[in-house]
């Protein structure tokens, strides 16, 4: 990192490659689709380069780049909202109640992992950003509560509760989307009294 800050482009190339996949993964889960994730991740990479000389090491480099990736993703989402949307896409990212039927219409062509991908994207997009981002930073970026609190500039307690609520809602959405076909402990609705 020091070499990259000093102007070593080879060192910068290595640094970017080391962090790109995880940054892209964060962007992928926050934006909900490949195209926006690619754009956001690229913007994030450029922002990292532009800010590299100003990075003072007070936070971990990983925390810093995830903050950048998060902001780039949220910016991409705001740009997306200003763009016209295809009806089908809106349908998939809306209530989340109409997409399982679309996939089921494909009958035997349905492939589980593709369905899961749509399923989790739809479930995550139903979450408000305030809940989606900490969940993604925890489950995708593997940041701990303190690091997420630093990235989002909120108290740790807020991070914990937002992650809990976010996970619970995603779990409930997945369960509903599957029509509770596989009941069991893992499919129990979080609202169920314990």
């Amino acid at each position: 990192m020091t070499a990259a800050q000093a102007g070593d482009s080879g060192a910068l190339d290595q640094l970017l490659r080391r962090h790109y996949d995880r940054m892209h993964a964060v962007c992928r889960r926050i934006t909900g689709n490949e195209a926006d994730a690619a754009d956001a991740a690229q913007e994030a990479m450029i922002a990292v380069v532009r800010g590299l000389t100003r990075f003072d090491g007070r936070s971990a480099f990983g925390t810093w780049v995830y903050r950048i990736a998060t902001n780039a993703s949220l910016d991409e989402l705001r740009r997306r909202r200003r763009r016209p949307q295809l009806a089908g896409r809106e349908s998939n990212t809306g209530t989340g109640k109409d997409w399982p039927e679309q996939i089921d219409h494909d009958g035997g062509l349905r492939i589980d992992h593709i369905a899961d991908r749509f399923e989790i994207d739809a479930a995550l997009l139903e979450l408000p950003e305030d809940f989606r981002v900490p969940v993604v930073l925890r489950d995708v970026a593997d940041l701990d509560y303190a690091e997420i609190a630093e990235v989002l500039d909120v108290p740790i307690g807020t991070v914990k509760s937002r992650i809990a609520r976010g996970r619970a809602q995603v779990a409930a959405t997945i369960s509903q989307a599957n029509g509770n076909q596989h009941p069991g402990p893992g499919r129990q609705t979080p609202g169920t009294p314990i």
Partner: peptide
Amino acid sequence: TPELRALVASMREASTMIAAVPVV
């Protein structure tokens, strides 16, 4: 507590799916 274990399991499933990001 069985209910809590079930809740953990459902959240674990959600977390696993969230973490399984398509390879770029």
